[in-house]
Design a protein around this nucleic acid. Structure first.
Lengths: 215, 215
DNA sequence: GTCTATACCGTGATAGAC
DNA sequence: GTCTATCACGGTATAGAC
């Protein structure tokens, strides 16, 4: 019995769907391809998950809860470690982003695929609004609240626009497109998550401070 | 003869393909949908453009050249207006981004669709590396050179990672997903390009300066 | 309850006749 | 340029094996 077959068939379907949806998007993948990669019968996907769209949602949901817990925990930890005035902008951004880096470096490659799928969804004019809002906005709102405290006097809309920039930079990092590899002629690598986050965190923090601190 | 039919059939196919590919991605659109929206016969698309993939490339190429010219012109202009030490980081970022804002605000809605398509391609693990590199890297490299001058002593890889963050933030702006509308409860709007760029430019400039200026 | 084999029906891309 | 036939493929339902 090879590695792929240690997991239950149901899990294997989710794993295969996760990877293929992340690579090709919802419409770029057929149920038959997913079944083939999972080494199960075509009909088993419908049996467990119903329609294709429901399988897609199941993939999205599987790790969303875990991610939300990890990121909330990181926020609470950095808040409890700071004094009464609350954590700095940089600490908050760090708490928001580092859990993602940890999972991208997880030995289970499923996490890498999942996060690339999140990038696909976040950037999609069709799925973006609906799915991301539904499952991630409660957490994001808590981070926004923390940022408001760390940036007293900032205009609310400035904070949202800064979050938009953060979200975009993060999304491209999650997508692992390999574009920076080519542009930099190999100097930087899409798969070097450590470098990506080490550069992203101070970059984003500086952006917030510049835009949200009126001269 | 209504508005849609003033343009040649070939152009109408490109217009329809542009809009639909931007919304649903390559696999989410069928040639028949494109033909229907363009009000032409199904087979005319193959007649003019060959395979579906070739139509996709034709859509991508149609405005790429124009965009490259406009952005190069903006760079040269800001360089000629600065002294011998060259333009500031913020001026360079402005030259890189403002031409995009202008086109997003163009009366021809095709530009909005086209730029959303660029967002889709830039974020795709499949198309991203290939298409973007091929047509935009020469221009991007010129901007990177200008940024190196404006940030003397910066490590090359730091500049590339900052560009990566810029590229991600821009991509999400181009995609017009409507997510910020929902998150901010209507305070900010994806379609308010002016606000998006007014916030993006200082945000990105501050990020470059923080990361590329060693203390 | 888990799973497989198969069949149905709609749709899509494309080539070739016109 | 247009119309049409063809053929492959996709999503899904069903019947029944284990």
């Amino acid at each position: 019995m090879n590695n792929a077959q240690k997991r239950s068939k149901k899990e294997r379907i989710l794993d295969a769907a996760e990877e293929l949806f992340a690579l090709h998007g919802f419409d770029g993948v057929t149920i038959r391809q997913i079944a083939a990669q999972a080494q199960v019968d075509v009909a088993l996907a419908s049996y467990h998950f119903g329609k294709k769209r429901e399988l897609f949602d199941a993939v999205f949901l599987r790790r969303a809860e875990i991610l939300n817990e990890e990121r909330l925990e990181a926020l609470l930890k950095c808040q409890s470690e700071s004094g009464t005035e609350g954590p700095s902008v940089e600490k908050i951004i760090e708490a928001f982003l580092r859990p993602l880096e940890m999972e991208q470096e997880n030995a289970d490659p499923g996490w890498k695929h999942y996060l690339a799928l999140v990038a696909y969804i976040n950037n999609s004019p069709i799925w973006g609004k609906e799915l991301m809002s539904k499952y991630f906005d409660p957490l994001v709102t808590r981070f926004i609240e923390a940022l408001k405290k760390a940036l007293p006097g900032a205009k609310e809309e400035d904070i949202y626009w800064c979050y938009h920039n953060l979200s975009g930079a993060l999304t491209l990092t999650l997508a692992q497109t390999g574009r920076i590899d080519k542009l930099s002629k190999g100097l930087c690598k899409s798969t070097d998550f450590r470098a990506a986050y080490d550069h992203m965190i101070p970059f984003i923090a500086a952006g917030f401070q510049r835009v949200c601190t009126k001269p």
